[in-house]
Amino acid sequence: MKLALGPILYYWTREKIQKFYEDIAAAPVDIVYLGETVCSRRHIMRTADWLEMAKMLAGAGKKVVLSTLTLIESESDLKTLRRITENGDFAVEANDMGAVHRLSGHMPFIAGPYLNIYNPQTLSLLSSLGAQRWVMPVEMSLKTLQPLQQSRPAGMETEVFSYGRLPLAFSSRCFTARFHNLPKDDCRFLCIEDTDGKTMRTREGKPFLVINGIQTQSALIYNLIGDLDSLRNIGVDVLRISPQSEHTTEIVRLFRECVENRISPEGAMQQMEKVMPEAGCNGYWHGRPGMEQLYLASLVPHE
């Protein structure tokens, strides 16, 4: 199984992004997805900057993929989209059907997690349009993935979101700006203060969701490290790790060691719990509410 690093979902400073990918260049990850996928207003990294970063990572031996914006609303968003789909050097992850429209017939692409591929018919269709890999929607389970694996088109790779805060929803409203009582058009880019988003708690204090600009994430950390056997058995090709502000390379290393059977899932989980920003969950993979945590018989629940 290969390991992929998903795009950074938060808004970080240029220095932080630079340092982050320098570390990633040396980390045991095979594929790196780059680009702004959440908010079109974020501008610290322009497309040209991402392309530079892509070259650096490719030079370090990584397979680099440029990810497109998920919510494409304006002509200026479409211009950015075209610059990415026509970059000529790097593969592209399409996160909107508009991106698929630009890519199909021109170059092979990766069908991102927001394209809503839920059945073999749609997967075959995407394949015929040039998709070579697809990322399963986060809410799908082992059981619902099975028929897609059995009938998947030749050469199609399957990637599963396996670690990180779940990207659950997109809005055109910015919830970070709303928190600061600012209109989105004058948001002052305050999401840069929240390197792992802003936690939203229930009125009894339980961490529930995370605000990340126009995106809403789970507060709990989706973590399928304890489910490696089933991921492997069903023929998943790529595991996606979603960046967090600290300890991402540590998480990558633990996944790598676990995939190579150099450490047990139990051992990896114990080390991860020290660096996870919140408790874990894995319900979706088991066909349960996403927020639930189901343990392997051998894994003892913490607390």
Binding site: L71, P137, E139, M140, L168, A169, F170, S171, L209
Partner: peptide, 19 residues
């Protein structure tokens, strides 16, 4: 939320508009 791009309900209950 953008319709078709919201899994909040399945995160909590297992059932969403999409599925």
């Amino acid at each position: 939320m953008v319709e078709g791009r919201c899994s909040l309900s399945s995160y909590v209950t297992g059932e969403s508009p999409n599925n």
